[in-house]
Design a protein around this nucleic acid. Structure first.
Lengths: 195, 195
DNA sequence: TAAACTTTTTTACAAATGTTAAAAAAAGCG
DNA sequence: CGCTTTTTTTAACATTTGTAAAAAAGTTTA
């Protein structure tokens, strides 16, 4: 996906202002397994995904917890590192050979501070991510694991084929065994009294 | 808490720009139990909490799920209603007699579009909320219910005394019975083999 | 293509959490 | 106050989900 389209997905802005951002980008390609970002280090880049799939995960007691997937058109950054300029807590890993447009966080911050259109673009980006995060957070609370799995299939068509199930289970907040149990039984066949 | 302080908590901006926002605010007082916002209606106001406690909750199958608390200095808005101009999915309820500074969403949107400082203030607001949401989302995944309860006590000192436990249990993602079990046993005394 | 490795499913069991209902405690109110 | 209502705790039981380990399936590589 080309960069103009990625930017427009968040909020279209007049050409000249868009170009101010595009000018600063560098297209890089990373192999499967490459870490674009590591925990305990200051994240200094923001990535616009042109091609490929990445996941963000945290490491907790020897265990990886995947909490975000990004594919073509998505934007990856450590909000933690960006806002409070502290070391990131997450890893960002390419799950396929992946092409990203990269920009230094410092440069992006400068653009935001200088330009009204870009500042509002950045605002809309954060707002839309926040909206998704809230939706996902509440869904985690009142939807069953099976419903969340079905939502995942609908919201990320094709991703099931590109991402291994262990990562998806963790993303859904369940163990891989539970996910396997869900997939085993056909949809709609839950453990009702006389199931 | 006065409005200047509430705004500065997100990001300080030069006086004249801050005043552009403050000019538009109306201070209102609502009694305990009042709904500042209701699901299935377009949320048309943003609230800056001067005094009191509010909660945001969703209604799912006869059941209320509290997912956010706000107190002095916090800012309440329906990000869903704000960004995609759809009906809100959440309720916003005052848990005490509460004073809020209110501004129409439309007015705030206009201010953002016109002014660089305000646009960046709005961006930082969304970014910091997003950062908190991510933190809470991952914590939900790898912390036990007891740890989340302890985090709540640390992150919201005094709120335990102002909010009933049923709401807190729901906020923590557990049943009220579970919360009661946690509170029953002293800290550190978990169910170990010879507990 | 055989061996080595990784991923997914299955099994058996343990632990955590939910549900419903009732008792106890606390808060609200005339 | 004492009665009523609400909130919190406790109890008993059912269910979900997790863990660890093994089997099966699928991939990779020499």
């Amino acid at each position: 996906m080309e960069i103009e389209e990625i930017l427009d997905r968040i909020d279209p802005m007049p050409q000249p202002f868009q170009q101010k951002l595009i000018q600063e980008l560098k297209l890089i390609t990373v192999p499967k397994g490459h870490l674009l970002m590591s925990a305990d280090r200051l994240a200094d880049q923001v990535y616009f995904i042109r091609k490929g799939v990445v996941r963000a995960y945290v490491l907790h007691q020897e265990r990886e917890i995947t909490f975000w997937f990004g594919q073509e058109g998505d934007i990856a950054m450590s909000m933690n590192s960006f806002t409070i300029r502290k070391a990131a807590f997450e890893f960002l890993e390419a799950l396929e050979s992946t092409e990203v447009y990269a920009i230094a966080i410092e440069t992006l911050q400068d653009l935001y501070r200088q330009d009204l259109y870009l500042a509002n673009w950045g605002r809309k980006f954060a707002e839309s991510e926040l909206r998704l995060a809230e939706e996902r957070f509440t869904a985690r609370q009142f939807k069953t694991a099976r419903e969340r799995y079905e939502d995942f299939l609908n919201n990320y068509p094709g991703l099931l084929q590109r991402v291994q199930l262990g990562y998806i289970a963790s993303y859904l907040g369940i163990s891989q065994v539970s996910l396997s149990r869900i997939r085993m039984k056909p949809v709609g066949l839950t453990s009702s009294p006389r199931g």
